[in-house]
Design a protein around this nucleic acid. Structure first.
Lengths: 138, 138
DNA sequence: CTCATTGCAAAATATTTGCATAGTT
DNA sequence: AACTATGCAAATATTTTGCAATGAG
């Protein structure tokens, strides 16, 4: 069941790129341009496939900030996002700021939804959208 | 500045359709199929343009539940159904079932997040992921 | 050698737009 | 007549997929 995983130049480059982002947002286009400027192009399809795999491993998150533009990706390393402790995310629709919300902040609702609907929330995948304080003031 | 607004057959039909939905979700495709089956076709562009206008008037809401599928629209009219105001969605990661969650189910959390982070939630964009009761039992 | 991975281009998908025509006032 | 609305098809834009070629083990 364990899928083999060949080491390729592309994966190394993409992996380095992720770390370089330091947790900042980036789009697939950003990635492609980055490598194009270093004259070591990587196909879009490869970038999408790589990111998809990283998402599956919980190392990358994908956000849709604006439905009309490309998706934003974000590398989640411990400095940016402690994956060891379950938590929800608040995401500003306007500026894209990501706020961490301890999972207990939602525990009452979590329980309510659990008993009322038999539905168990998955913090890893749940992003609460809205406007952050800065964008609210504008 | 007030744009004129001619009465057309299409607008009448679309307006009736909205009321028929009774507040349920629908996609642009739903609308088109509905009219195609009644052999009074309406162009997609017209449907999009009409819905966009209705959104501007606050009569229709647009929800993006799944980035990979078409947007959901909803007719908002208290005369039709008085619990038609904003609501959140629960979506099962496994079977894809979509559950409506009255917004007041989250109101305590909504307030907490508002005061603690200055962050105002947007029900239209917020989907809580997890496992539905059926999938939990498997 | 075997099989995963890549890159390209084509496909798929959703929504928007230009433009000629039809319809409303 | 003036001007809006419509429908079509083409354009956009993002992401996915089929497939032949390449590269890793």
């Amino acid at each position: 069941m364990a899928r083999s995983n060949y080491n390729t130049k592309q994966k190394d480059l993409l992996s380095s790129y992720l770390k370089e982002t330091g947790g900042k947002h980036f789009t697939v286009e950003d990635v492609c341009k980055h490598f194009a400027s270093k004259s070591c192009e990587i196909g879009v399809a490869t970038v999408y496939r790589y990111l998809e795999k990283m998402i599956g491993e919980g190392v990358v998150s994908k956000y849709i900030i604006d439905e009309h533009s490309a998706a934003c990706f974000q590398y989640l390393d411990e400095k940016v996002c402690d994956r060891k402790h379950e938590h929800f995310h608040l995401k500003c629709e306007k500026c894209g700021e990501l706020i961490h919300l301890e999972s207990k902040a939602l525990s009452s609702v979590q329980n309510k939804i659990e008993t009322q609907y038999g539905f168990s929330l998955d913090p890893k995948r749940t992003v609460l959208y809205g406007l952050c304080s800065a964008c609210n003031e504008k």
